[in-house]
Design a protein around this nucleic acid. Sequence first.
DNA 1: GATGAATGAGGATTCATTCAT
DNA 2: AATGAATGAATCCTCATTCAT
Lengths: 191, 191, 191, 191
Amino acid sequence: MARESDKEKRDLILNATLKLITTNGFDATPMSAIATEAGVAAGTIYLYFKNKEELINELYLEMKVRMMNSVTSGYDVTLSVENSMEFIWKNYVHHIMTKPLEFRFCELFTNSPHINRITKEEGTRMLQPVKELFEKGRKEKIIKNLPDEIVTAQLFSPIHNLVKLHLSEQFNLTEKVINTVFKLCWESIKK
Amino acid sequence: MARESDKEKRDLILNATLKLITTNGFDATPMSAIATEAGVAAGTIYLYFKNKEELINELYLEMKVRMMNSVTSGYDVTLSVENSMEFIWKNYVHHIMTKPLEFRFCELFTNSPHINRITKEEGTRMLQPVKELFEKGRKEKIIKNLPDEIVTAQLFSPIHNLVKLHLSEQFNLTEKVINTVFKLCWESIKK
Amino acid sequence: MARESDKEKRDLILNATLKLITTNGFDATPMSAIATEAGVAAGTIYLYFKNKEELINELYLEMKVRMMNSVTSGYDVTLSVENSMEFIWKNYVHHIMTKPLEFRFCELFTNSPHINRITKEEGTRMLQPVKELFEKGRKEKIIKNLPDEIVTAQLFSPIHNLVKLHLSEQFNLTEKVINTVFKLCWESIKK
Amino acid sequence: MARESDKEKRDLILNATLKLITTNGFDATPMSAIATEAGVAAGTIYLYFKNKEELINELYLEMKVRMMNSVTSGYDVTLSVENSMEFIWKNYVHHIMTKPLEFRFCELFTNSPHINRITKEEGTRMLQPVKELFEKGRKEKIIKNLPDEIVTAQLFSPIHNLVKLHLSEQFNLTEKVINTVFKLCWESIKK
DNA sequence: GATGAATGAGGATTCATTCAT
DNA sequence: AATGAATGAATCCTCATTCAT
């Protein structure tokens, strides 16, 4: 039970951090506020994280892990490349739309000097399965022969952008629109 | 000459802010550092900007203005929709690639709580000419009948993303690649 | 055995404190570090000592006791005043040279506000045997008629100082030098 | 006048530090207390000293300088070695007796890890004139042929010790006693 | 007795902002 | 207008001590 309690407290802190930083930004979120929100003492945070920077970095990784789990959960290897892609793509969209805090947090920190190189690389490493799918698609002559970066950009950045607009209520991203966008994106890279 | 000197000092401060914030981030850029970099006294900044927040906001607007000027400079109204689009698109790419500081700054602050609603709206308002071009394209049945947001996302976010990778040296964005990407994007929205 | 174990733990804590405080100083030695060095839990220290201050004070007394034991061990009451003095003096020198940690600790705390008046007095009280020897010397007209404080100062402070230099490697205190210094000191107080 | 004010504030801070640290010890003297005692804001200290450590080090040096100035002020080179020595010795005693705070401060920090090597060396370097006097005495066959360290120890440490007792009111150091002690010390090193 | 997680007060330091010159 | 010394609130973090297990 001691270990459960540890896990719980760590999670309370991570969740409090996620909520406050996403809402107010890094600078406007003192450790004391995180402690209060998490219902622990200020010093307790330092039992689980070395300092504010490490707290952010671990939270960032946690977010990336959750996302990849979400995206690949239920993934069926026997699916065709196109169906696999659609499955992953829609899982991704669903994930970021239903976890706005996690999404916003990743947005804020992906290019932040607070995230150190190692964390960033570990975060990127999780995209491996997707890259393998691209490779398969190219080999099977299903998608165009373009570098991973371009395929990723064509496939994911438009919807990524639209989700951002949706979450800031500048645009209403319906299921129908999502389907439309997937088709546009897929068309642009398929052979 | 007094007014010119004023203008100069204001610009010195804005440029110093751009450089330091882009390099070190908002938190790691004290007003005193900006003053030193600009070659003025700390107090002087407050003669031109009410406080740090306003300084950031004004710089943000300035960046947006410069970008729109860059993008539409030399724009010829007699061009076809497709050619207009290509002109603007490539101007945009050129601008953000040659002004990495300005680009990075906008990236950092577009979704930041430091930029207030009014500044953000004013920044968005400058996209008006582009939106009018979309409207024209839809009317002339040259591009698909899609909302502005989707057209913008399809057209600009992939290259936007690739420029980010390019500037962080994770990808080499050559002239050839740029042309390829334009074609992909344009294909995805044209009728 | 329980009591033996208690004694052991108390000693482990005292030794750890001696080592760490001497090396790093009082401020740079948290209780948690002492616990780790002693191989006990942080809370355990408080079973043996009321708080940090008392821990220091008890250690200080312990050091004084050890020193007096060292200094008078093997002391022969039938010796002449001069021989007694030489015996004690050289025992003292030997003790502080072979127990640099204990010596440094006493140095650090003799004039520190952390050592309370009572501890200090108890520490001084142990010099009683030496003072009696002075009294005997004066009565037998072997040493000059000077107050204890002056005799002590003349006899011990020069070598005390040289040992400090020796331990900080600014001076090499050989057996020959020690003998020379004893003679100088003794001459200065003998009649 | 601006510079005078600077000097004044720096001195206010140094004096406050001297007083509080000597009374309460390093740990028990927060920067905020120093600020209050000096009559400045907490942040102001950092305009004159990089941090607490540097403040202590500069104060330490200041104390050493003042002492050497005191000790050699009015020093007449035409005096004999013995008279020179007596002059300096008594100046020294007078200085540490009349400046108990400065004396205690030096005592506290001479062997403290807070004083860095450079400061310590610079502090020691000021003893040069005294060492030259020793050399002269040896050459003129007036004092015994002993290393500087021993001469220093014999000459200064007994009185140093007695002053400490005097200041802590464990001993009353009268002018007569001082003269007696000088004679004892001088006798022990003179040929 | 022993543990070590949890506490929260306290301290060094930074920095946006002001204001006397 | 320009300065930059001074301010002091705010923040991160440490650590002596407690207490439930």
